[in-house]
Amino acid sequence: MEKIKSLADLKKKREELQTSSQLLSQSESIQVRVAMATCSIASGAKQVLEVIVSECNKRSIPVSVTQTGCMGYCYAEPTVEVTKPGHEPVVFGYITPLKAEELVTKYFVGNEMLEGVIPVNYEKVEL
């Protein structure tokens, strides 16, 4: 990223970034967030992320996978949030590497729900 040269420049940069993330959400690709805090990684999030990436590659499913911090659902780690184009985000808990494969074959491809969906239980403040 280039240097931010003034306060106005920051605003411009923010708008650019927001536009590009909006474009991404309108695209055909599935957006996946894998919680990758210390506790998630300890319960196997890294392997889960790898499985999702490789399974999607194998099937040429357009996907954008990112890591994120703690989602707060320690009891259900590893947790993965999936946003399919035109759908609301869904958080899946208890995703083992085996279940990650199932997530791709069933939910990504077939739109079939898996067990372990976590209802979002907070209101997030938007700045």
């Binding site: 967030r33 911090g69 209802p119 907070y122 209101e123 997030k124 403040v125």
Partner: peptide, 20 residues
């Protein structure tokens, strides 16, 4: 689970990529 939580300090936690 009817949204008893409000995330201010955790507003971005679990949402953004912390390395970006």
């Amino acid at each position: 689970n009817n949204k008893k939580q409000i995330r201010i300090a955790l507003r971005n936690c679990g949402f953004i990529n912390p390395e970006n």
